[in-house]
């Protein structure tokens, strides 16, 4: 691996590090709000990876002069990833809002937003239900 390859790819690897930190928060943490924060971090890292693919050396932001007298020598950065990521950011906030609404709803129902406590309550509910069904069948189930 030579130096120019390293310089040309190190940005991708740094974005992967950020992505994986977000993924770690999603997988390892039990708190639902924290999971959503981790998901947001992952998402932002993906956006950065995508935008960095559109960068051109010596390029400038893809905006023409307001008088529209365009110098043909100007190099513009690829505007297409910017458009796609603008859409993705707005969709991302919509899904975040939906996730947070689910968290609020879970808290109302279970009184907690910790994953392991919710699982415990679910198990208690299931065994209680089994007990009642067992009684209805004369204690033989």
């Amino acid at each position: 691996m030579d130096w120019s390859f390293f310089v040309g790819h190190v940005n991708y690897w740094l974005f992967v590090v950020l992505m994986m930190t977000g993924l770690y928060v999603v997988v390892a943490k039990g708190n639902l709000v924290k999971k959503i924060v981790g998901l947001n971090m992952f998402q932002t890292a993906v956006f950065m990876l995508y935008i960095s693919m559109g960068k051109v050396h010596g390029g400038t932001a893809p905006i023409f002069p307001t008088d529209m007298k365009i110098d043909p020598a100007t190099v513009y950065t690829n505007p297409l990833p910017h458009v796609l990521i603008l859409t993705a950011i707005v969709v991302g906030i919509a899904t975040t809002a939906l996730g947070l609404a689910l968290v609020v709803r879970i808290r109302e129902e279970y009184g907690t937003i910790e994953e392991d406590e919710i699982l415990e309550i679910e198990q208690d509910m299931a065994s209680e239900e089994n007990r009642i069904h067992g009684q209805a069948m004369g204690g033989r189930a």
Partner: peptide
């Protein structure tokens, strides 16, 4: 990275609205 439109959308939506939504959830 020359993505100025994305930058101000991220600053407004990512740092603004999503923080407000999360504080409301907290």
């Amino acid at each position: 990275l020359d993505a100025v439109d994305v930058a101000f959308t991220e600053a407004a939506v990512g740092a603004g609205i999503s923080t407000v939504l999360m504080l409301g959830t907290l």
